[in-house]
Simulated scan of single mutants.
Amino acid sequence: MRTPKTLAPLLEDGLIDHVIQPLRSGKEADLFVVATAHGVRCAKVYKEARQRGFRQAGLYQEGRTVRDSRRGRAMAKKSRFGRHEREEVWQNAEVDALFRLADAGVRVPTPYLCIDGVLLMELIVDAAGEPAPRLSDLILTAAQAAAIHATLMRDVARMLCAGIVHGDLSEYNVLLDDKGPVIIDLPQHLNAVANNNAAAFFVRDIDHLTAFFGRFAPSLATTDYGREMWALYQTRALQPDTPLTGIYHPESTPPDIAQVLREIDAARREEEHRQARLAAHAEASHAD
């Protein structure tokens, strides 16, 4: 196939031999299966900020620090250099998260290098050697759903203990190979300690998974692992091997009024953005 323009520099530098096939296109990046001297890999080509469908990036990036003060000042000023630096930080954030999560025992793709807006990483494959499917592409039995759900709940607990909240986790961001689920797509992850929006996004992530698995195993639909884990995390009682029940008793935990208000404000802002997009779409349709 014709080599995408964004992958040409890696081809010229010998980092990839050729592009085998496109894999998928997402709101943040386009993925390709590529051949390298070390085997078949996945090349994730990040889209520019103006092309990404990812909204409210500021809510996710709150609490991320930049060690280089000059870089930080440039990003704050939103100059041309600052925008370039912000994009680089956004892309490198995924690489850092992948290494941290692998060290924490979470199954994620192994990253190899990130250069010129391209992340070269492990290609997750199924038993036949084909690119592994996303959970969203599968029909599961109740037993399969329960087993995969249990593994993912343990993995998100490990993520939280490592200080990371995915922020966009759902059946579309989990692959399934012959060993089990693999969590993908982490450039938007949140700092669980420093980001005031972390609790709301964490609970939303788990609610997405609960809704998906509940379609196949109805007993999972009434569980509340998200709020249970966050309550344990807040009291420093959550460990990677802490037994989880999926039951949450809010009356036993003093309400965090400030957090509730933050969640309400985040939901309000998200709804305002949604309404603005709908209005813009309607206006464009009327103009046509």
Rank of each mutant, 00 (worst) to 15 (best):
F99P: 00
V118P: 08
I115T: 11
D30H: 11
P131L: 07
F81L: 14
V89K: 10
I16Q: 05
N92H: 10
C42L: 15
L113G: 12
R134W: 01
T65H: 09
R67V: 07
R80V: 14
R100Y: 03
T36F: 02
L23M: 11
S69E: 12
D96R: 14
S69W: 05
D96K: 12
Y112K: 02
R41Y: 05
L10V: 09
D30N: 14
Q61C: 00
C114S: 15
D30T: 10
C42F: 08
A104D: 13
G26H: 00
R134E: 06
A132Q: 04
R55A: 09
R107C: 08
S79H: 10
V118R: 07
R50E: 12
A102D: 13
A97G: 03
A102V: 04
V33H: 07
P111W: 02
E48V: 07
V45P: 02
D103N: 15
I115R: 13
R41F: 07
Y46C: 05
K44P: 04
R134L: 09
A76R: 15
V34C: 10
Q61V: 01
L123R: 10
F54D: 03
L123P: 05
R24W: 00
G26N: 01
F32D: 04
D13T: 10
G72M: 03
H84V: 09
Q56I: 02
